[in-house]
Amino acid sequence: MMNVSVAGLGEALALHRSGGSIAALALQSISSAEMAEEVQDAALVALDDNVVGYFATATIPVTRRLLRCDGPVFGPLTGASLLPSHSRLRLPQGVLGAEWSLGLLLGDLYPDPHRPVTASAIEDAIIACVPMISVLGRRVTGGVPLNPWTATADFGLHVASVRGTPVFERHLADLQGLEVVASMNGAVVGRSRGGEVMRDVRQAIADLSLYLARRGRQVPPGNLIAIGGGPLILQAVVGQAFTADFGELGTVEAVFG
Rank of each mutant, 00 (worst) to 15 (best):
V6H: 00
W149N: 11
E37F: 10
D70H: 04
L249Q: 00
S101K: 12
V255M: 02
R68C: 01
G195A: 13
V140C: 02
G230H: 06
E179D: 12
E123S: 13
D124M: 06
L136D: 06
P111Y: 15
I30L: 05
A187N: 09
G156H: 07
S101H: 15
V51A: 09
L77Y: 07
D49Q: 14
V39N: 02
L13D: 01
G142R: 12
V238L: 00
F155L: 09
R163D: 01
E253P: 00
H158D: 04
D154N: 14
P72K: 02
F168Q: 03
R202V: 12
V219T: 14
V39C: 04
I205N: 07
Q218E: 14
I133D: 01
A173Q: 10
L224F: 14
A244L: 06
T63I: 06
P231Y: 10
L13V: 04
E196I: 04
R65N: 06
A241C: 07
E123Q: 14
G156F: 04
A254C: 04
G186S: 07
L178K: 02
Y211E: 13
I122K: 09
L44K: 07
A24P: 10
V252C: 00
G75V: 01
R163K: 08
L44S: 13
L67M: 06
E179C: 10
G137P: 11
T150L: 05
R138A: 01
P221Q: 05
E11S: 01
N223E: 13
L27F: 03
R88E: 15
G216N: 13
I225L: 15
G142S: 12
P231I: 08
R217M: 14
L105W: 13
A43V: 07
G190Q: 13
D207A: 12
T78P: 04
A119Y: 10
S81P: 05
N3T: 10
G164P: 00
I122D: 07
A43G: 13
P145A: 09
G19S: 03
Y54A: 08
L136E: 07
A58E: 10
N3I: 05
G53K: 09
W100E: 15
V6T: 02
A42H: 06
A7L: 04
G79C: 06
D124I: 02
H16F: 03
M132I: 01
I233C: 06
L104M: 15
L146H: 05
R202M: 12
G71D: 10
T57V: 15
H86Y: 11
